[in-house]
Structure formats: C-alpha cells, structure tokens
Design a protein around this nucleic acid. Structure first.
Lengths: 193, 193
DNA sequence: GATGACATGTAATCAGTTACATGATTAG
DNA sequence: CTAATCATGTAACTGATTACATGTCATC
C-alpha cells in the first residue's frame, strides 16, 4: 500500500467531511490550490485507487435537482495513514521557479522590458496578498482570534499565514528588481546628455 | 521552433560562456539548482534538441588528462531567443508544497510529532539561509557592492536575494508553527494537573 | 586492481496536463 | 434551444526521474 501525494491531499480534505469527486476538485481550487493543485481527470482515478486500497468508501447519492453523484468518506485505515503521513518530513521537492530563471539571465534584457516584467509580477503578487489577508481576517473572525492547533481551521490559518509572508516577500523583491532597472535607466539617460 | 523551459535554462547558462553537458549539469546543481533543477539524462537530449534548432553548436575537445568532451556554444539565434524569453511574463506554475499540504491536515497530529516536524524544517531552512547569505556576501565582495543590472553577476545577486528573503520567512513561519504546538502542549499538561 | 571523478548517452517509468467523450439538470 | 453548472470518466501526450549502459583517466 503506497499512497501518492495527491492521494494524501484528497484524504486531507475528506478528513474534514465526505465529498464527491467534483466537490473535491472545487476544494482543490479554493483553499488547497494555493499549495496543491490538481485536475478532475487526475482526481477520479486517484479516488478509485484510494478505494481499492481501502482508504475511502463511496455511496451513490441520487439528487432530484442535479445529476447523481458518488460521495466519498474516509475510512479508519485512510485516517490512520493520513495521520502517520502528516508529521513525516517531506523530501525537499525540486525547486522550479521560472521567474527566478529569467532573473538569472535578466542582465541580457533592456531596462524598459525588465521594469515592465517586474511591475506586472509585483501587481500580481500584491493581488494575491490582498486575497490571503482577507482570508486571514475571515478566519480570525470565525474562530475567536487564532484557531487552536487541534481544530481543522488551524490548517487553513497556518497555510494562509505562510501565503501572506510569501507574497509579502515576493512583492518587496519585485519592487526592488524594478527599482534597480529604473536606476540603471536614469543613469543611462544622464550619461547621454 | 519552440524551446522548453529547460532549453532556456541551458541557454541562460551558455550565455555566460561555453560549457560541456557535464559542466552544465554541475551548474544546474550549484547556483541554478536553487530555482531550476535537472538531471544529466535530461540535459543531453535537450542539448541535441537545441542544436537541431540552431540555438547552440558544439566542438569536440580532446583532453590529455581526461576523457574528451563536447563543448557547447550559444549561437546568435539562441541568444536572440533567450533575450526575447527573459522578459516574457511567465505563466504562474501550479503551486505544489508538500509541507503546506501536511500543514493543512496537521490538526490531526500529536503536538510532539508536529513540534519535531517543524523544528527539523526550521533547521533545514536556517542552513540554506546561512548558505545564501554567505553567497550574497561573496558576490558583494567580488563586485564592489551591488552588481549593475546589466552585468551577469546581477543575475546571481538578484536570485540569491530572493533566496534569502524566502528562507528567512520560512524559518520564521516554522518557528511560529512549533511554538503553537508547544503552547498547546503546555496548556494540555496544565489541564491534566 | 579498485574507487571515484569525468564524460555521454538510452530506456523505462511516473506524475500531471490537455484533450476527448458523455450525459443530467437548470436558468435564461 | 442554448449555455452554464453539475457530474464522471478515458486517452494521448509531455516533462521529469530513475535505472541502465558504456567508457576514459587518475589516484590510492
């Protein structure tokens, strides 16, 4: 029995309550998607796999107003496997950041183009930051102040905290990058006069 | 003609000077590896592909003390393609952070196990932080103070700056996480007395 | 003579994305 | 009747990792 990371991701969501594959995909967008993404076409086979391993079971639910669906529930075996996994040190994943790769070769670019690139990135990350900060406040209001480490909402809070710190750094770095090229541009203009 | 991200990564390295496949793989470890990793078995076919596209050429160099090697040089076409690529906005990659996924389900864990996980992570990132900070100082000494945006060393400096900010945030967040579980543990012990 | 760094590749496998295929039900 | 959402899947392709395969040269 070996479970893929996606498998654990699905178990982590199902640990909070039963859901259909379609609904799992929705969760894979909104809160989970910030640190683990996945497509429906990958979720369905993975659910079948988890069921074959005895980590989940499903019931067909017939709905009147919508098409019928399969609602999956985590089993004791699944719960045990998930609990064992959460505190196992993850193997450091191969880093892959295309923006940093571009940055490594950015000395080749025109200042104007570089400034545009980093201003755009700065704005993008500022938007995400605002989104996360909104989420953080929502969570703090839902539970009185900071959630306790043993309630599910703590998972949301802790990850959103990381998101805020991450996006905050990103925005500042992008800002610094654009600034460097603006300074270079200014001194170029001065030289040509 | 379409070039993969790995292809651009190789071009970005070759833009600083000709190298063999083996040497490119070395660079893929030391400075580039922090934001783009790759194996030799992927590099060799990619170099052949780049050569077929006219982005690089190679010469066989016979060495006396070592086996012969193929040294690759970037062409004008390769240089043009690279320069056009560096300032194109990258498509945001699907986020995938296993530690955050575990964090989302960490409320299921025992406080002791959680503390160990985050203390270990904190130490790991503190080590990387020290490594990056050392690198930053080395670069600042090599060039008088901050490298100019249009010299190659700026690429190294800018990426290492991001690395420092990132690892710094990571260390702080891990520390906060461990602290949350230590507080939970302390209040548990108090309750049982 | 064995080990390790240098050097270049191919083959099998895996995880994940995109495209394809089908169908129910509701709202406009 | 048409588009959007809900709902479940399969198939083809792509990028990357791991394992396999071969060989040179220097040092211990």
């Amino acid at each position: 029995m070996d479970i893929s990371t996606l498998g654990y991701a699905l178990l982590a969501i199902l640990a909070r309550g039963p859901l259909s594959g379609y609904d799992l995909a929705q969760r894979m967008k909104k809160p989970i998607g910030f640190f683990w993404q996945s497509q429906l076409s990958q979720i369905y086979p993975e659910l079948a796999h988890l069921e074959a391993q005895g980590c989940v079971t499903h019931k067909v639910i017939v709905q009147e107003d919508r098409p019928q669906k399969k609602v999956y529930t985590i089993t004791d075996a699944g719960s045990t496997a998930l609990k064992a996994w959460v505190t196992r040190s993850p193997t450091p994943p191969p880093e892959r950041n295309e923006l940093l790769l571009k940055t490594y070769a950015i000395w080749l670019a025109d200042s104007e183009a570089a400034i545009e690139l980093f201003r755009t990135q700065e704005q993008m990350h500022a938007e995400r930051l605002a989104l996360y900060e909104h989420d953080r406040i929502r969570i703090e209001q839902e539970s009185g102040r900071v959630p306790h480490p043993h309630e599910p909402l703590f998972g949301n809070y802790a990850t959103v905290r990381m998101g805020i710190a991450y996006e905050h750094e990103y925005v500042e770095w992008c800002h610094w990058m654009a600034e460097q090229f603006e300074l270079a541009l200014a001194s170029q203009l001065q030289d040509s006069q």
